[in-house]
């Protein structure tokens, strides 16, 4: 099987589709909801609030330093649910596969999705596979949609940032962006920079165990930290101030940005969250974050300074102050 390639027949809904479902997806995702092979999963009722989120993944290359599209697709939706304060429970996985993709690659991606799901205790309960003509997609596209449960006393949303909230981040920024760039462009970096892709739901629950008064959570994925902060500033109509020297960053990422002319504030992250926490809880939440394997380098990077004007300011490392805007278009490497 591992030497085979995916042909259009695998998406036809016929025999080969059935074989693919049974020999690959059921084998890896195995759970009572999925195993019924019903048209949809019928899930038990809950008395909690329900978080519902979807995202599509089109990363190129499919396999990169520190992960692959499968892992990313699970972590991404798990994290979106987690940013609502939810405990992720159920996922759907939809694959659009380019004909000619190797079965081996598909199996690797499936296995990596299964592993990531298991790690976060989320069940893949329904799914779909389509195979399209060569060139219609780039390898494999994945959509995941997830449901999670939120405790009734948790109210996290981007419009809740308050003056004097401290802004926390769980670790260094930019690693995913640089990792993908290096894999895509075959950049030979002196030091390997793996993607930071990671599931953050457990970390969020740890933080909520300190206080239910976490006002905002956001994962700074595409557009990076700068864009995420701007979105929150706009939703909450607040002025935010962050300190450049307080933002954790790996030396290797810093150096690569320096050479290529990228601004790390705009680089994508896949295992990072920012939290807006009232001042009195900030230190305790930080302490808790640092105990998690996904928050060892957590830091307080700034605070909400005023209400009314939606702006993000950066205190530069030399003591200057400047505006940090949203990412516009794609970040491009500079000429000289």
């Amino acid at each position: 099987m591992t030497e085979d390639i995916i042909t259009l027949d695998y998406g036809s809904g016929g025999k080969l589709s059935n074989q693919l479902i049974r020999s690959l997806f059921l084998r890896y995702f195995n759970n009572p909801f999925l195993n019924q092979l019903h048209d949809g999963a019928i899930l038990p009722p809950s008395d909690k609030k329900i978080a519902f989120s979807t995202d599509s993944y089109t990363v190129s290359p499919i396999f990169f330093n520190g992960g692959d599209i499968g892992k990313l697709a699970i972590h991404g939706t798990v994290n979106d649910l987690a940013m609502c304060g939810a405990i992720p429970k159920y996922l759907s996985v939809s694959l659009i596969i380019e004909e000619g993709t190797s079965m081996y690659a598909l199996e690797q991606i499936t296995s990596s999705m299964a592993e990531a799901a298991q790690q976060t205790d989320i069940l893949i309960v329904t799914g779909d596979t389509k195979v399209v003509n060569k060139g219609d997609v780039d390898g494999i596209f994945v959509n995941t949609t997830g449901i999670g449960y939120i405790d009734l006393d948790v109210d996290i949303n981007p419009a809740r940032a308050q003056v004097n909230d401290f802004i926390l981040i769980n670790g260094p920024i930019g690693n995913h962006g640089i990792s993908i760039l290096a894999s895509r462009e075959n950049l030979e970096l002196e030091e390997s920079i793996p993607s930071d892709t990671a599931p953050l739901a457990d970390l969020v629950q740890q933080m909520l165990s300190i206080t239910r008064e976490i006002h905002v959570l956001r994962d700074p994925t595409r557009g990076g930290l700068a864009t995420a902060l701007n979105e929150i500033a706009q939703s909450s109509q607040v002025e935010i101030e962050i300190g450049e020297v307080k933002i954790p960053m790996d030396e290797a990422v810093k150096d690569t940005c320096q050479i290529l002319g990228y601004d790390p504030l705009y680089l994508a992250n896949e295992g990072k969250l920012i939290a807006f926490v009232p001042e009195q809880y900030a230190e305790k939440v930080l302490e808790k974050m640092k105990k998690s394997c996904y928050g060892e380098q957590a830091a307080i990077i700034g605070r909400v300074v005023a209400r009314g004007k939606a702006e993000v300011y950066l205190l530069t490392e030399i003591g200057g102050k400047r505006i940090v805007g949203m990412l516009s278009g794609e970040q491009l490497p500079r000429i000289c």
Binding site: I318, G320, R322, R334, C336
Partner: peptide, 16 residues
Amino acid sequence: CGTHTMSIFRYGIKNL
């Protein structure tokens, strides 16, 4: 030089 321009803005040198 464009890189000077960017540095001047990036570090907030004008304001200092």
